[in-house]
């Protein structure tokens, strides 16, 4: 892939902005449009772009399979974990109001945390699916 100079330079220029935008969508999702799912997909598409241009091997050296697989499970566990924590603190499952003294703050905290869980899982699954397809040879 050494021939496509323009693509390589443009990808390197765009990568930080794509990832930054993904993080913005993730943590600003409660004020503007977006949320965990969209952020995860944008984050993944940044890495997929990188893997398309520079090859899957280079992308793997940044995000190896082990991290991706633990991220996939970790996001779901984080989400369910918030539910368990709210159970332990005396509320219903996934009832964020008990997470902090002020129910409103509790709701806000709970939503932010589970959105982060959603984002992690979605991003890791999307990158994993792309890796698996790209590596598959008959």
């Amino acid at each position: 892939m050494n021939d496509y100079l323009v693509l390589r330079v443009v990808t390197k220029l765009l990568m930080p902005f794509i990832l930054l935008f993904a993080l913005y969508v993730q943590f600003h999702g409660d004020f503007g449009p977006g949320g965990g799912f969209q952020a995860g997909v944008i984050f993944a598409s940044g890495f997929i772009l990188y893997a398309l241009i520079f090859g899957v091997e280079n992308a793997e050296s940044i995000l190896p399979d082990g991290i991706l697989r633990s991220g996939m499970a970790g996001g779901v566990l984080l989400y369910a974990g918030v539910g368990i924590v709210s159970l332990l603190m005396g509320g219903n499952f996934l009832d964020y109001s008990v997470l902090q003294h002020d129910p409103v703050h509790g709701q806000h905290l709970g939503i932010s945390v589970i959105e982060f869980g959603v984002g992690t899982t979605v991003a890791c699954v999307m990158i994993t699916v792309f890796y698996t397809f790209a590596r598959w040879k008959g």
Partner: peptide, 17 residues
């Protein structure tokens, strides 16, 4: 109830958790 201005987010994450 949630102090989250984006109603879509609060419905998805809290009411429809």
């Amino acid at each position: 109830a949630t102090s989250v201005p984006n109603v879509v987010t609060s419905v998805l994450a809290s009411y429809r958790g």
